[in-house]
Amino acid sequence: MSIAAQRTDETGGQRTPAERRWWLRSLLALIVLIPAALAVMSYDSVREFLGNRDFFAKEVAWGSKARFGGSDWQLTDLRAALGRADIPPEVVPVLVDLTVTVGETDLQTLWLGCKVMLVDAAGRRWLPTAAVSFRQTDDAKTCISAIFSSARSGDVLKIRETFLVPKDATATIRPAIGVASERPTFLLFERPRD
């Protein structure tokens, strides 16, 4: 080993080849360790962020069922409710009917944060409204009230939600459903085919 091959460090000391090798290894390790540390530290935040969001759509064709939150979901109807005098003409109340065959019965865990939505072609999203309500002639529930219905496995629940949507959006709106146990994935139903 010649003297010329050795480098001098800041304190004026000489670095042995073994030190130099470890110095390089440490430097290279930082390239891996710094991103890894960032990933570990932000993991919880990212999971929380995605767990609160309906991000990835799982398409469901008209007439078919999809397993979601331990139960089988099917869109049965999407219709406008016209002829209400107390609603301005440019706004349309829309009713969404879903039929759910309960599989796993722990709905209070599996369906927590249950949210039925309407999504239009422009990506706008509507949540159920409390501004209008319609008299129910059947035993339809909302998603939240279904959670507390103590349904048993195999029961078929009818879920109905009401929305207020501007007229221009009615041509493209599609129903969707998200629950906390499945987020960031959500179900996006195809519009009813005639």
Partner: peptide, 8 residues
């Protein structure tokens, strides 16, 4: 107040 897109 609850608001819906496109509904004034």
């Amino acid at each position: 107040i609850a608001l819906d897109p496109g509904v004034p």
